[in-house]
Amino acid sequence: MDTQVMNIIEQTANLEHANIPDETVGDVYVDRPRMTARNVNVFYGDKKAIDNVTLDIAEKQVISFIGPSGCGKSTFLRCLNRMNDTIDICRIEGEIAMDGKNIYAPDVDVVPLRARVGMVFQKPNPFPKSIYDNVAYGPRIHGIATNRAELDDIVESSLERAGLWNEVKDRLLQPGTGLSGGQQQRLCIARTIAVSPEVILMDEPCSALDPIATARIEELIAELSSEFTIVIVTHSMQQAARVSQRTAYFHLGKLVEVGDTEMVFTKPQHEMTNNYITGRFG
């Protein structure tokens, strides 16, 4: 964990030298926001990793975060379900609200928050348990299923939604770590949706996968967007263009530009966004 923190800190460039305007360009606000972030600053120790980000996340839509590595997109994502709490030196200012309630308010419990805002990680990380137990883990700890039959239903429907059911239905009791990389990542998605979240955060979910498995996950994201609000961090602009309706471009901890994906990729309003999507740096 310490090395992980160090990596994050090292990647976080010193914001003092950034030559970026204070105002975010584009449509920060939306009509039906599921989550709202207002003036969010994040610090690792003394280092500022996120600088004054304001952004709405629209309901049942896919929004993607893009930007060069170390730009803070993953850090901002991890703020949305308070995963940064597990890092001791991380400190957050500003407000991130869900249903009008600041999730960083002192009386908010992270446990139900994370049940509502699920997360899928960069590397597939199934538990060293059976496929069934992997998916059933969340419903079990939260007591979401009232009986065994209901739990079976949840596992089956989650695996179906993750497009994995047909591949694993005959070997539910085998270890989840025995699946291929792409299957493992879909298992992790099934595990996340098994607790019926409202928002799913995905942190570069395809970066460890081959192109075929990536295509499969992208298809899945498209399907899931009808039921869930999805936030995806990606280092691939093509992926962002394929799967998301909105795109946010981060640079050195600042949110430079946000808007409809088509607009951002075809008519970027900010010069830096333009430079990035045309491949001048990143």
């Binding site: 992980q4 379900n81 049940a115 699920g118 997360m119 969340g138």
Partner: peptide, 22 residues
């Protein structure tokens, strides 16, 4: 691996649930 802890926390486990079950 920290990834396993992250997975458990990401699903909303408490610390003790993460420790005992993962």
């Amino acid at each position: 691996p920290q990834a396993l802890r992250d997975a458990a926390y990401g699903l909303g486990s408490t610390r003790s649930e993460t420790v005992r079950q993962v």
